[in-house]
Each structure stands twice: as C-alpha cells, then as structure tokens.
Design a protein around this nucleic acid. Sequence first.
DNA 1: ATAAAACTTCGGGTAAACCCCTAAAAATAA
DNA 2: TTATTTTTAGGGGTTTACCCGAAGTTTTAT
Lengths: 215, 215
Amino acid sequence: MINILIADDHTMFVDGMESILKSESDLQVAGRSYDGPSVIDFLKNNKVNIVLLDVNLPGMNGIEVCKEITAHYPDVRVLAISMFNEESFVSEILNNGAKGYLLKNTGREELLKAIRTVANGDSYFSKEVTETIMKSLMNQRKASGKNTSFIPKLSRREKEVLKLIAQEFTTQEIADNLYISLKTVESHRSSLLSKLNARNSVGLVRIALENNLLD
Amino acid sequence: MINILIADDHTMFVDGMESILKSESDLQVAGRSYDGPSVIDFLKNNKVNIVLLDVNLPGMNGIEVCKEITAHYPDVRVLAISMFNEESFVSEILNNGAKGYLLKNTGREELLKAIRTVANGDSYFSKEVTETIMKSLMNQRKASGKNTSFIPKLSRREKEVLKLIAQEFTTQEIADNLYISLKTVESHRSSLLSKLNARNSVGLVRIALENNLLD
DNA sequence: ATAAAACTTCGGGTAAACCCCTAAAAATAA
DNA sequence: TTATTTTTAGGGGTTTACCCGAAGTTTTAT
C-alpha cells in the first residue's frame, strides 16, 4: 500500500487527484495539505510514502518544503507537481531531492505511472518536462562541475556576505550595505574562507559559482 | 514510408537492427554505412528520412558526421546510438543536431518507437539516457553565458596571469611561476581589470568563469 | 617603412584584504 | 534548559591588491 500526501492549495485540483487515486487499490490518500508548514507537520505524525508536492505553495514554497522533507524524512519520496514547465523550477526542486516532476495537465494514466515509479525508488519525468530540460541542456553546453566536493552549510549572513563579495564590493561597502561593522564582515569572510577552504576571495567566488551558492 | 540509413561499423548489430526494421511496413532500410564519410556520400544520392548514427564511428566520428548532416541535409533526422551512456557524448551530439539518443541495449519496441517519434519531428531519449542527463543537470545548473557582453582580446600573458589568479595564487606566486617580477604581474592584473571592466580580482574571475576564459 | 598601438616590464605609495586573537549578545538546536 | 552556532565587534599587525606613472619591446596598420 502506497500512502500519499497531497500538498496543493488548489482544492479543485486536489479533489480531482484524489478521485483518481481512490479507485486504485494499491494507493491511499493519507492526507491533504494546503500549505508548506502543514506538510512537515503531517509527516511528523503519519506514515507517508509519497508527497505530491505543488512547487508553488503558499506560506513556505515547495522548494523549501522539499528540502526539509529530504533532510528529515529521507524515506518519503517527493513527486513535484506544477503548472509551469519552467526549467528553473524543475532543476531547482530536483536539486532539493524531488524524485519526479509532473505538469498539472498530466493525465490519469501518467499520474498513476509516475506515482508507482517514484514509489518504487526510480525517478519520473513527464515527456514535456524532459523536453524542456533537454532544450536547456542543448543551449548550455559544457557542464561545469562533476566534483563531489562537500560544501558545508553556510549561515544566512555568510551567504549574504558571499553574494556581495561576488559582486565585487569591498569590505567597507558590504558593511555599509548590511549595516554592520567592517570587522564583522571580515569575520564572516574569514569563516567563509575557512568553511570553503579557500585562500582568498577569488577562491570563495570560484567555489560559489561552481556550486551555485549565489541563489 | 520512412527511409532509414544505418550507420554503424558493427555488422552484427546492423544485421540485428535491420531484421527488426524489415518486419515493419512503414519502415525501410535505405542503406548501410560503416564509416563517417560514406554516410555523407550516401545522402548525396539517396532520399533518407532518418539516420541511425553510431556515435563512435571510424574514420570521421559520429559528432562530426552529425554536424555535417544537420548543416547540409536539414531534413534528415539523426537518431544517435551508442554503447555508452556518457553525459559528454549525449550532450555533445545533441548540441550538433541529433534528435534522439539511444543505447545499444535498447529493445525492439523502444527502437521502433524512437524511430517513429523522431521521424515525426519530435525528440526521443531512452529512460537511462534521460536519467544520465538529469543527474548531470543536477550538478550543473545555470549554464554560463547568454550575455552579449563584449570581451576584449586578452594577450598571452594576461591570460596566463588570469588563470593563475583564478587558481587563488598570490601575485608573488604568479611572478615566481612565470619568472617575472611581482610588479609585472600587477601590471597585467591592472590591464585585466581595465579590459574586463572589473573592480577587483573577484570580478576578474567571475567574468572569466562566465565567459569561459580559462581554457 | 614608419608611426601608432599594444604588450611586457618595473618602481613607489596607499588602500584593502587577510590573520590571530578575544568575546559577548542573540538565535538555534538538542 | 543547556549546549551549540551565529552574529556581532574590536585590537593590532602582516601581506596582498590596487593605483599612478614610465620605459623598452613587439605587433599592427597605414
């Protein structure tokens, strides 16, 4: 039995999805959530195999929710669902642990297939989504990184400072921008150098760009 | 009727493929090629809809052949076939106009489906290939440049210095490496800042990475 | 061929970055 | 609640980066 949590704020859509699922003997809708935090809340108290997660969710957006789920509930598979066949959405949520991505115009059969595929541990992407990604791939070319470099978690301030460093601001300018002391900025920079194992700001920015730390 | 040219140097494989195709009434094997140049030669004198092209072809490799085909025979669709589910192969040949990519362990049904899909003007990628590309996409993200930023020509020395700056070397280390004075290196750095319109080395490296100046 | 432009090479001086240290208030996690 | 991390900030010093200027060499263009 596959337990499914539907996380979407559009009632009609959830209803439709549920009506498709309830006719399947191996699938069971364990619950519904209409915003991000309640998804996390639901997972605390219920056994769920699959979360059908709307990428654009109110309160806490789908990407954040997905990140949270994969971090704390690694057994729970996320199948992202969205209105938009947008490359940025797709890669963003895939990078945060989603196992599949469907568009909302997906038909009954494909939805069921996707759920069972993902429940089985595989990945699933609809044809249109695949094509979107292929197209963007074709315009991209050389894939930068393949490295398995471990990137320690950066704090909020560190990320802010890093972004400003990458924008060629001086320490003083960063301090003014963030309304903190020059010394504080230097302290953050120092932490960044240590965490990212860089010798100087150039290394900081190179690593940041290679690992997309500037989003 | 879909006319197909099979371009592969492995006879047994071509035989197998042909036996699959000849039982289909809408498909017809127009010819076989065992190397790159003969593919181009065949297209000169024969009407072909689809080329089943081995990526690793003797004489003139598949990527070159594919480029040639899309340049001179835009109506001919290329369906790439390879032993290897290698991201570099896939993206390389897709960048050169191939409409699909199959692995050689592909079954009969999938082969037929791929041929008809590509003949119909769509793209086709096998599941495994899709996953490979997804994986690499996840490690990649936003590809380099789409910007129209004009990059002035850099001199030999400037490029050398730039590369070393990007590798986090200090000015003194760069000087030692190139057997020139510290002051000379700083002069080159200064030229770089001016040419690339950067405020500091961080900007230099960001611009270099965004524009692939480090090859 | 000759002038103009660009490249490579340095010196001196200043601003910025980087380092080592300490340390307390504030926010988070266990 | 307690422990850990984050954010804040300072003193004091060394190293590096950046700016201005300049001269000899090479390349490019007329």
